[in-house]
Computed example of a mutant assay.
Amino acid sequence: MRDPDRPMLFNIVFWVVLLATGVIPFAAEPWPGSGAPVFALNLVLVAALWLSLPWRRVGGWRRPLPTAFMLATFALGYTGSAEVHILLTLLAIANVAFVHSVRTAAVILGCLSAAAFATMAVLDGDALRAMVQVVPVFVFALFVLGMVSAVLEARRLLARVRELTVAEERARMGAEMHDSVGHHLTLIKMNLENAERFRTRRPEAVWDEVREAKEMTVAALADARRWVRALRPLALEGRVGSAALEGLAASFDGTGLSVSFEVVGGEPSLDPDVELVLYRVLQEGLTNAVRHAEARHVDGTLVFDGRRVVLVVADDGSGRDRDSHGGFGLRSLAERARAVGGTVVSGDRPGGGFELRAELPVRAKAAT
């Protein structure tokens, strides 16, 4: 019932149509004694198969279920349905396309249409009437396949966009990691080279160089730990939503930064894409506060307001560099927020420091 891969609208349509398929024949006319049990078993079979249907490519025993479901819905027309079951067959065709391919579904559709036409033409003795009944269903089925094809293409493009986003984010973070950790390692190398050069001429200066190298090592280690935190996945130890954000804020303890995090309002179930944007906004605000703003304290506030969620990350640091027009990280966040129907803005606070503010819908807008 709660299969995340199955479109919710399909679920609603299926149960409504199945109920109508079972009720209308009884309401239309009295059942002959021999037909009702077969029809009832057919309905039970269709319902059982629906609950087991996969909606993505799978292997094993579930792979043939879409074809079995299609045949079971098709059989309703012969066991007693008053043609109401046709919508169930259209759903079955869509399911075959999702699990196998649009081409496979089209082949099966062609075979079923030919079989239905031949059966009706033989039983009724009227080929024209059979064609009039089969062709509209065939056309609607082609429309369904077209819609499924569009959904599958949208899924493919969305997966590709996410892959590119991850690659872009990793490239950005790799470059920044190289600049920060690489800078410290370069200074450590220079200190050790100086210590080696001074060991005979200026022995007293050797320990100064070693001490500075030690301090740089501590700084490089702290920087590396911050990047490890920044690269953590969204679910920290199984937590999501505000719990994941609180975990991210707590993970910056020990970096010299004091972080407070507050949640205001009742928390609804967040769209995964919205949740990811919130996580990245807090991550960017905390990382920038440590690396650039020389901040000592950061306040994070997550406010749930009906259909909106607002995240504010404010620090007491030096504010934005006057020569800076917003780095890649902030521009990337703004683009992500627009993609889900929200906004991310940033700027200096009136009392000093820097503020990052995200306003997002609880449910991400549909892609257009």
Score class of each variant (00 low, 15 high):
residue 232 R to M: 09
residue 243 A to K: 08
residue 229 R to H: 15
residue 208 D to S: 08
residue 206 V to F: 02
residue 237 E to C: 05
residue 190 M to W: 10
residue 210 V to F: 01
residue 168 E to N: 01
residue 212 E to V: 04
residue 190 M to P: 03
residue 224 A to I: 02
residue 242 S to F: 01
residue 250 A to S: 15
residue 210 V to Q: 01
residue 190 M to Y: 12
residue 241 G to E: 07
residue 246 E to K: 15
residue 248 L to N: 01
residue 166 V to D: 10
residue 193 E to F: 10
residue 222 A to V: 08
residue 244 A to M: 04
residue 183 H to M: 09
residue 236 L to I: 11
residue 181 V to E: 04
residue 173 M to T: 09
residue 195 A to N: 07
residue 228 V to R: 10
residue 256 G to Q: 04
residue 255 T to W: 00
residue 236 L to Y: 10
residue 214 K to T: 00
residue 241 G to S: 14
residue 179 D to Y: 10
residue 224 A to Y: 00
residue 180 S to M: 11
residue 168 E to P: 02
residue 196 E to W: 09
residue 220 A to H: 04
residue 229 R to A: 13
residue 222 A to C: 05
residue 240 V to C: 12
residue 239 R to L: 11
residue 177 M to E: 09
residue 184 H to C: 07
residue 245 L to T: 05
residue 188 I to S: 01
residue 167 A to M: 01
residue 179 D to V: 04
residue 234 L to G: 09
residue 207 W to E: 12
residue 224 A to N: 08
residue 238 G to I: 10
residue 191 N to R: 09
residue 160 R to M: 08
residue 191 N to P: 10
residue 235 A to P: 01
residue 195 A to W: 02
residue 193 E to P: 06
residue 229 R to Q: 10
residue 190 M to C: 06
residue 252 F to A: 12
residue 189 K to M: 14
residue 179 D to K: 13
residue 251 S to R: 13
residue 256 G to P: 00
residue 172 R to Q: 03
residue 203 P to F: 05
residue 189 K to I: 11
residue 170 R to C: 03
residue 246 E to W: 12
residue 197 R to A: 11
residue 204 E to G: 00
residue 212 E to S: 01
residue 164 L to T: 04
residue 190 M to S: 13
residue 185 L to I: 05
residue 231 L to F: 13
